[in-house]
Amino acid sequence: MGCFHSTVRKPVPGHENPTILASQTAFSVSEVEALFELFKSISSSVIDDGLINKEEFQLALFKNRKKENLFANRIFDLFDVKQKGVIDFGDFVRALNVFHPNAPQEDKISFCFKLYDMDGTGFIERQEVKQMLIALLCESELKLADDTIEVILDKTFSEADVDQDGKIDKSEWHNFVTKNPSLLKIMTLPYLRDITTTFPSFVFNSEVEEIAT
């Protein structure tokens, strides 16, 4: 008599093969399977359909489904690369891969640029940055006068917008974050190093016979 029951697993939509996902990312097969435990928890929090919708994403971030947040929406849209309105497991793993401590710095710089280039023009424009600053003030208890916001924008653009055309291009962004590396701190999640320890139950659901590391 064994300790575990053998069960026929229900196919999960969008559940890509962990071995293939591991080959495309910095994650090992075990880490991909541990990420699936996290994915299952988030994707079943409102509708148990094997996909993360925006409401579930907000709920996981804020523990509050009613809270709309510009930045969480932006991150969701970048994870949802196929623009389906939902994040499948492959999207989830490939996007989190950019946040891995070992991911290339260039990938982090590029993802961060897309995050702030909200309208996708290929430039971070002053109006976009102002909109994000105002959104930050709304979500935090920080209060800044409009004049102060303009001073912050002037200072930021005088440093980052080298050709002074009122917008930050990819090359200017690259130089700016290289001089201000703290701006990339949000792009690294130390949790991803210990994902198998955080979600040890992956071993009971593993699809691979021998877990490669």
Binding site: L38, S41, I42, A60, L61, F62, K63, N69, L70, F71, A72, N73, R74, I75, L96, F99, L115, Y116, V129, M132, L133, A135, L136, E139, S140, L142, L144, T148, V151, I152, L153, K155, T156, E159, A160, N180, S182, L183, K185, I186, L189, Y191, T198
Partner: peptide
Amino acid sequence: PAAMNAFELISMSKGLNLGNLFDT
């Protein structure tokens, strides 16, 4: 805050702190 650049301020947003996803 006025001494910080705009992106330093923006990166303080809770919506950009994906570490919260792991707090299940």
